[in-house]
Design a protein around this nucleic acid. Sequence first.
DNA 1: TTTTTTAATTGAACAGTGTTCATTTGTCGG
DNA 2: CCGACAAATGAACACTGTTCAATTAAAAAA
Lengths: 195, 195
Amino acid sequence: MGRRSDHTRDELRALLIAHGSALMAEQGLAKFSGREAAKRAGYSVGTIYNVFGSLDQLIAAINSHTFSLWAEHLRARLEGAPDDRIKALVEGYFDFALAHPNLWSAIYDHRLADELTEHDQEQRAVLTAIVENEVRAALPDPDMPGADRFARSLIATVHGHCSYVVSGTFELLDEPDPVGNALARVRECIAAQRG
Amino acid sequence: MGRRSDHTRDELRALLIAHGSALMAEQGLAKFSGREAAKRAGYSVGTIYNVFGSLDQLIAAINSHTFSLWAEHLRARLEGAPDDRIKALVEGYFDFALAHPNLWSAIYDHRLADELTEHDQEQRAVLTAIVENEVRAALPDPDMPGADRFARSLIATVHGHCSYVVSGTFELLDEPDPVGNALARVRECIAAQRG
DNA sequence: TTTTTTAATTGAACAGTGTTCATTTGTCGG
DNA sequence: CCGACAAATGAACACTGTTCAATTAAAAAA
């Protein structure tokens, strides 16, 4: 088969990301296969290299897509619990990761040799922005200098706890309530920002 | 070549771990090759399966070995700075990871299908125990209930920050001082344990 | 000591992987 | 209608993990 035009370039991108994402969710990064992803999309291996330049860039795009799903999940959870928004964020962070462990892990297990696309970076920045806004609002002084850096430090804090849950480290250490721990640490740090 | 006896079982284990660890440090988990590791140790692929049962178990053993190096690094750093021991721990956590990013990442990027060996678990628990002791000592009340769980929560906190550094996430977000952030969070949480 | 049994080591075989690229075949501007 | 371009293919290559019959040395038994 030679040239087709079943899909535009953008449709093809979306198609490969969608099927790639499904495969990633099923198999995880370690067992992910470009050939299989292409086959499911109805194309052959080479097409990945035409469209994304490399398999790694397809995986990066899949991961960026996961970020979008995740951001949407957080937004929905914030909407459903307008009282304690920090709690909603922390719980939303965890339950997305636990609902989609393979997708979530792939984000952090994948190491890209070259840099992320502009598009990928923007897609990923959305989640960070959501958290930055909420943390700022929860701060004793929302205009505190370095509020955004502080917010990202809190993300890292929650991330560490979540990472231990998904990797099984906490299970090994018989930790009964990792989410509660993460939330407690976040609250302590926010409280410490007064004065 | 048939049966040899150049090495005892334990020597062979150590040999494969040593060469595997060197390869892991050079190439990282994604490009790690069992064949290559075996070749460097002077044996053939099959030997890995004889000794460890599976390639994944060899990788688990390599990672446990990394934990030992890491614990030793922390001990040395604690010895060199007996005044601010929490700072020594946090900095020690980071600079081991940054000195050996491939070894460090392999620990968290590798997902074992079956469970860890007793031996592997013990080897890994050493690092946790060191931190638990130090955190306990730094606590307003060292006999606080749940001190160990709290210590592990702090480890998760530092881990999250470190993970973001090694994966490049923080670099992307222009964070100038991730270690400082981690240390600040840890201090805030410890201080919050009084009362 | 000689023979038998047992255990360790190999490497070919298999099914899969990522990556490249000559070849084919639609699409489109002139 | 045709030539130029672009997209899709899949065979080829060098690798991967995993299995396992065959080989050979060590240990046990005779």
